[in-house]
Structure formats: C-alpha cells, structure tokens
Design a protein around this nucleic acid. Structure first.
Lengths: 205, 205
DNA sequence: TTATATACAAACACGAATGTATGTAAATAG
DNA sequence: CTATTTACATACATTCGTGTTTGTATATAA
C-alpha cells in the first residue's frame, strides 16, 4: 500500500481510468467527484491527482483510449485499396464500428458518456471541437471513397459524392447516437446492421 | 419590488426561464447554480423556488416551451393529406424544422443545451427517455407517410417503408446534432437544406 | 550504500451550492 | 374594510467538492 513499482503505478493509473468511466457513466461527468472515482478505484484522491492534473485530463485519457484505435481502424478500413469494392468498404467500416461497440464495454460506455453524460462547456468545449473536427475527417474520407465508387460506375445515376458522403455520415451519426442511448436494446440495436446495409443498397447501381 | 399582480408574476416566471436558458447554455446545466440564474433574471433565488421546485422542473419548463410546438407542427405537416405528395411533405417537414431552428433563438439554444450541455443522469434520465419516445413517434409518422408514398408509386423499386423511415430519421437526427453544434455555421448549416433535398431525391422514382 | 525521486495517503483550507425557514408588503377575496 | 394569500427577498444551516500541502515508505539511481 505504499511505494509501487512502475508497472504497479501503470496498473493504478488504468484502474483510475476505469473507475472514472464507471463513475461518469452512472453519475455524469460533472456530478462525479474525485472522491467518488477514488473510492471506486480503491485509492485516495492523492493517487488521482498524482496521475492526472484534474478531472478533464482524466476525461481526455479515458476518451483517447477508445477514440484513437477507432480512428486508426477507420483509416485502415476505408483507405485500403483492397479486395472489396468501395461501397462494400464503406459498409464494412460502418458495420465494423457497430460491432466494436457491441463487443467492447469500454468503448460503449465511453461513447455513452460522451453523448449523454457530459456537458461541453468551458474546458470541455475543446473536446467538442475535437469531435467536430473528427466528424469532418470522416466525411472527407467517405467522400473520397464515394468518388472511387462513382468512377467505377457503382453508383446509380449521377449522384454527388460529397452529398452522398454527408448523407451517410449524418445517417451513421444519428445511428450511433440512438444506438448508444438505446441501452435496453429495443429501439434499434437489433436492426442496426440491416439498416446500414439498406442504406448502402440505396445508392448501389 | 414587492408583491406583484398575476401578470407581473407570469412575466417574472418567463424571465426566469429565459435566464435559465442563457445560463445553461454558457455554463452547462449542472454547473449552473440557482443563484446565477437568479441574478441573470434580476431576482433572488427565492423567486425561482417560488415558481419552480428545483432545477429540473425549471429545465422541463424550458424544454416544453420549444418541444411542444415542434411536436404539434410535426403532426400538422406530416399527417395532413394535403396538396403535396407524401415525399414532398416529408421534405417540407424536415426543411421547416431547420428553418425554425434558424429563426428562433430560444429553440436553437434549447436544442444546443439538450444536445451538448446536459447530462442525462438521475432525474434527467427521464428526459432522455422522453426524447427517445419522441424519436420513436417521429419514425412511426415517417413510416406511415412512406407507406403512402409507396402505394402511390412514388418510390423507386421496392423499398421497405420502415427502413426508409428509419434511414430518414437517423439522417435527420444526425443533421440536427451537427447543425446545432456547428455554431460557427461553417460545417453544415449553409448546406442543410440542400442535403435534405438530396436525401429525398435519392428515394424518388 | 546512501540520496533522491516516486507513488501514493492523509490532512487542511476554503468556497460554493442547496433547501428551507422566516420575513413582508401588496394584491385580492369575502 | 380586514383577512388571507401571493410573490417574492433575506437569512440560516448544512453538506460537499476542490486544490494544495504535508507526510512517508519504498523503488531506484549513482
């Protein structure tokens, strides 16, 4: 219970992040006190303030743990000129993201926190800007893939890739929001994959 | 500055709601204290506690002021068997909602609060459920209109009205989220209407 | 082997927010 | 005209959270 080795400290750090996630989820970010996180992690506030400057740094650490892998994966899934045609790549990207939310509790909880248990004001306004910038990145990537699809004659009629990309991005943004908030799994979780496929089918030649 | 007439009291009540909206918007719901709302409204906490039991009652009052008219409008715009064909009715409903957000500061601010300045935990979890239930209502209405469109042969190929409705609802949900958060008006506000029209065009025969 | 930095726990100081209780002057009912 | 509400303002009690400071045992570097 005293001085730990470096690995022990890293474990403590991770436990604090996990405790923060659980606490944020059940009480909301701003209502969660450092003391609550600490007791949930089995440490004192001293440990938290040792590893993190304050609550928002802790929030950032929690967020990055799930966001960075997702961004990497997006780059992989969308950009790779691989076996599948562009429209299938988009479909796989969307379905794969849903699948990750299904499989990873940490990702699911973090998304729920970001979408309905956090107030984006003051220091948190920065986070919102990061989210928006990330959104712009997704739209951009989608547009490029849709352009490929168009040049390969996969799209019906002459549809604008930029508008298609935005439509898909907004659809998926809405889907994620509802998916995450549908904690009972009644509203749309069961049909999410089917909806994605129908969405893609709508633009296929 | 003492006992007011009934109309004066109603004015005070409305000023408190307005002050709450402004305060919620800039500091977030949970960080906003009753004292801040009071001073912003030019009254004391006593006045607020006279009109409202607590912060969440105040929140509900603020929300209902903009939500109830919107719901009424949805019923009018979508349900009426009028001059326009079903797909145009949907388009008008979506564009009209965007237009209201554009024109009404109160509506815009309230939506921004609900979407990014509020934590849906504890007492506020109820609000989230209301929102979800409202979402289900919108999907339902949309599905019915799409069924009309299908029976009139307005849709391309054989598309499932339920899936189309969900797709539209998710698209619009994503659009509203991004529209509200795009306070600089750079990301999508200028192209929102065009996106709606492209979305509808995609399903037209 | 000793000095120092690390990884926390414990204690302190301070502010801030909430709900309630009490006071009060004027509007309104009878 | 007086009794009672109404529509607040003011004061009080209590709780809770934050950031910082101090203490300390041990890992680690030299």
């Amino acid at each position: 219970m005293v001085r730990k080795t470096k690995e022990d400290a890293e474990i403590t750090r991770q436990r604090i992040i996990n405790a923060a996630r659980e606490s944020f989820l059940s009480r909301g970010v701003s209502r969660t006190s450092m003391e609550q996180i600490a007791s949930c992690a089995g440490v004192t506030r001293g440990a938290i303030y040792w590893h993190f400057d304050n609550k928002i740094e802790l929030f950032h650490a929690m967020r990055e743990q799930v966001i960075l892998p997702l961004i990497d994966r997006m780059d992989d899934t969308l950009s790779v000129e691989g076996a599948e045609d562009p429209l299938t790549r988009i479909e796989n990207f969307l379905c794969g993201t849903i699948q990750i939310l299904n499989d990873s509790i940490e990702t699911r909880q973090t998304y729920e926190i970001m979408m309905s248990k956090c107030e984006y004001v003051d220091e948190f306004a920065t986070v919102l800007r990061q989210i928006l910038s990330n959104c712009a990145g997704i739209s951009d990537k989608l547009r490029m893939v849709y352009e490929h699809a168009k040049s390969q004659g996969l799209l019906r009629e002459s549809q604008d890739p930029a508008q298609l990309a935005m439509d898909t991005h907004l659809f998926f943004s809405g889907l994620l929001h509802l998916w995450v908030k549908d904690t009972d799994g009644v509203q749309i979780r069961p049909q999410a994959i089917k909806l994605v496929k129908a969405h893609i089918r709508l633009r296929r030649n």
